[in-house]
């Protein structure tokens, strides 16, 4: 095991000058490679803010976040973009595929940004579409795919850059039960077989049930951090 995410004392405060609201309050979080973790909590508990800060989309007002040993709070906005491209995969609630590109082109797009060679891109695309079970939908535009299929393509896109971990913000929120189950199967399989680290923010019990670690956030604080099943993965963090 090695540490992928190591966040110390991170805080995010809105309206610090007037009525301070702590979206995230002094949170410590430690994730090892290969974890399959759900971040849960009521609306407004700070899940998305925490995820945004770990993903380098938002800067904390206090504390440090180390990804693979690099303190991302010290990086400039441009360095963060590059860091995200190389190290973090994102899956969003509303799929967010580029509508004018085909499923294949949406996945390839990330590798084009990384300036990966065509032959390598083709090979990776083939492998990813096999993993998400959409080999026959390579040339379909997002509008021709179901919600579940679009989210599977989004997962493939998130994995295209071979990231350190994948952040998924409510990935099943817009999916029906069958599609959500398929998606979770795929992500669980990728986690198990390729040791890919997943961190979800979710309300969805289906996701919570499949997670091996559940972190509960209330009012910007971690109130519970539980390892659910695995014998391999012990409780990874303590309640702070």
């Amino acid at each position: 095991m090695n540490t992928v995410i190591d966040a110390h004392n991170i805080s995010k405060v809105y309206n610090p000058e007037t009525i301070p609201v702590y979206a995230v309050n002094n949170v410590h979080l430690h994730l090892e490679r290969g974890e399959f973790t759900a971040l849960v909590g009521p609306s407004g508990s700070g899940k998305t803010t925490l995820l945004n800060m770990i993903g380098g989309l938002d800067k904390p007002d206090g504390g440090n976040i180390f990804i693979n040993g690099n303190d991302i709070t010290k990086l400039s906005a441009n360095e963060l973009i590059d860091f995200r491209l190389k190290n973090i995969g994102f899956v969003f609630q509303s799929f967010n595929l580029i509508p004018v590109l085909t499923a294949k082109e949406n996945v390839e797009f990330i590798m084009q940004l990384q300036k990966i060679k065509q032959s390598e891109r083709d090979e990776r695309i083939k492998q990813l579409f096999q993993q998400i079970g959409l080999e026959d939908k390579l040339n379909e535009r997002p509008s021709k795919l179901s919600g579940g299929q679009q989210q599977r393509v989004a997962v493939a896109r998130a994995l295209a850059s071979k990231p350190q971990f994948v952040l998924a913000d409510e990935p099943t929120a817009n999916l029906d039960t069958k599609s959500a189950s398929n998606l979770l199967d795929i992500m669980a399989k990728l986690n198990k077989e390729e040791n890919i680290t997943f961190l979800f923010s979710t309300h969805d019990q289906r996701v919570i049930d499949r997670a091996r670690r559940v972190i509960t956030l209330v009012d910007g604080r971690i109130v519970k951090d539980t390892a659910v099943v695995s014998t391999e993965h012990k409780e990874a963090a303590t309640i702070r």
């Binding site: 973009i81 590059d82 190389k86 973090i88 580029i98 990330i110 940004l113």
Partner: peptide
């Protein structure tokens, strides 16, 4: 606007 934010989020440089 949303799409552009998403593109920057997933790693597209603003210059690109």
């Amino acid at each position: 606007k949303f799409e552009m934010g998403m593109l920057v989020a997933i790693g597209m440089k603003k210059s690109t």
